[in-house]
């Protein structure tokens, strides 16, 4: 966990399970995240995908970017389709119709397919306790249909259905907290992850796979056209989301909260918000409101994490160890998101 070796990212497999030639936008943060998740998942899996950006860019008949068995059925039912795959494989395994090896079942959907239209199917699958990993790629709006707001769109963000109007400007509500919702199902594992922190992300995918029963992974997925950012900035924005505390990296492992990317000090949210076209119309008051809320939620998260795991001080020890590192290694450690 602690050895943030400069070259650690190369421990990821060189095999591509999400093949190139997909039609995702140039600089798509979600495509980066999917590539990494697939590398962590490996080949011994079956996937069910919701309708959405990744489905559309990856599977125009007669082509597919998927190197693993993969099915798309509809928008709101990825969790239910995955439930069926899990049940089908289980029954066939028990009856000796297929061999006994464990096959990881994975569902993937965007924030709309998870927090809005797919919430019921997800809740049902989590409650029934299917052994599967659900990955939500959160780009914070309905990007596939042209950037309409979802319940995961952050406060203040302008989308085509939360436009900058004369009376109201941008999203008027706060982002739905899927981590709390999924955790309330008492599932054994839930975590957030970001493509800016590949090692942390990969570790969480692996934990999710090893978990018996349902696991939930919420992955931030910067979207250049939807967020109004340059294509090259996707990863930088994902990193800033983590460092500002807007998208903290943590996990809830059998009920225990643990922050996996500790932040000595939060970077002001302004630095994250001002880089994005969707927040261009944010008033100073709204910006302040966001900052307050982020600080409050970060504090709450720390309290939850500390309450259960009082092993504070570990961070300090780690940073001492790293004193001798080179400048490049330091930059790298931040960029690769070596877990604390």
């Amino acid at each position: 966990m602690s050895d943030a070796n400069v070259y650690a990212v190369k421990t990821l497999t060189s095999k591509e399970y999400f093949a190139p030639g997909h039609r995702a936008c140039s600089g798509c943060g979600q495509a980066v995240a999917v590539r990494m998740v697939q590398k962590a998942l490996g080949r011994n899996i079956v996937m069910a995908s919701a309708t959405g950006c990744m489905e559309v860019v990856s599977s125009p008949f007669p082509q597919s970017s998927w190197e693993v068995p993969w099915i798309h059925v509809a928008f709101e039912n990825a969790a239910a389709v995955a439930s069926g795959i899990e049940a089908g494989l289980k029954a066939q395994r028990r009856k000796g119709k297929i061999d006994g090896r464990k096959i990881t079942v994975v569902a993937m959907a965007g924030d709309g397919g998870t927090a809005d239209i797919g919430l019921q199917a997800l809740s049902g699958a989590l409650e029934r306790g299917h052994d599967f990993l659900y990955v939500c790629y959160d780009n914070e709006a309905y990007m596939n249909t042209g950037v309409q707001r979802s319940s995961a769109t952050p406060f203040g963000a302008v989308t085509t259905t939360s436009p900058a109007g004369r009376v109201n400007s941008g999203q008027l509500t706060w982002k739905k907290n899927m981590m709390r919702i999924t955790a309330a199902h008492d599932i054994p594992y839930a975590a957030t992850a970001s493509p800016s922190h590949p090692l942390d992300l990969v570790e969480k995918v692996k934990k999710g796979m090893e978990t018996e029963g349902p696991a939930y992974l919420h992955v931030l997925s910067p979207c250049p056209p939807g967020w109004g950012i340059a294509a090259e900035d996707s990863i930088q924005l994902a990193r800033l989301a983590v460092e500002t505390g807007i998208f903290p990296l943590y996990e809830i492992d059998k009920g225990k909260h643990r922050i996996t990317m500790n932040l000595e000090k939060l970077v002001p949210v302004k630095q994250y918000l001002k880089k994005q076209g969707r927040f261009r119309r944010l008033s100073p008051e709204m910006m302040e409101e966001i900052q307050e809320r982020v600080c409050k939620e970060w504090q709450e998260l720390r309290e939850k994490a500390e309450q259960i795991d009082p092993s504070a001080g570990a961070d300090e020890a780690l940073s001492k160890e790293q004193e001798g590192e080179t400048e490049a290694a330091k930059i790298f450690r931040v960029k690769a998101g070596a877990p604390v």
Binding site: A48, S83, G84, A87, G88, A121
Partner: peptide
């Protein structure tokens, strides 16, 4: 009944589970 009975939360999920199950090769 030598099989899995999935108690879904809606008919939409009933058919979704059936699709996943049948696609995995199970008689559904």
């Amino acid at each position: 009944l030598d099989g899995e009975y999935v108690t879904v939360e809606s008919e939409h999920s009933a058919m979704s589970v059936c699709i996943g199950s049948q696609a995995s090769g199970a008689r559904t």
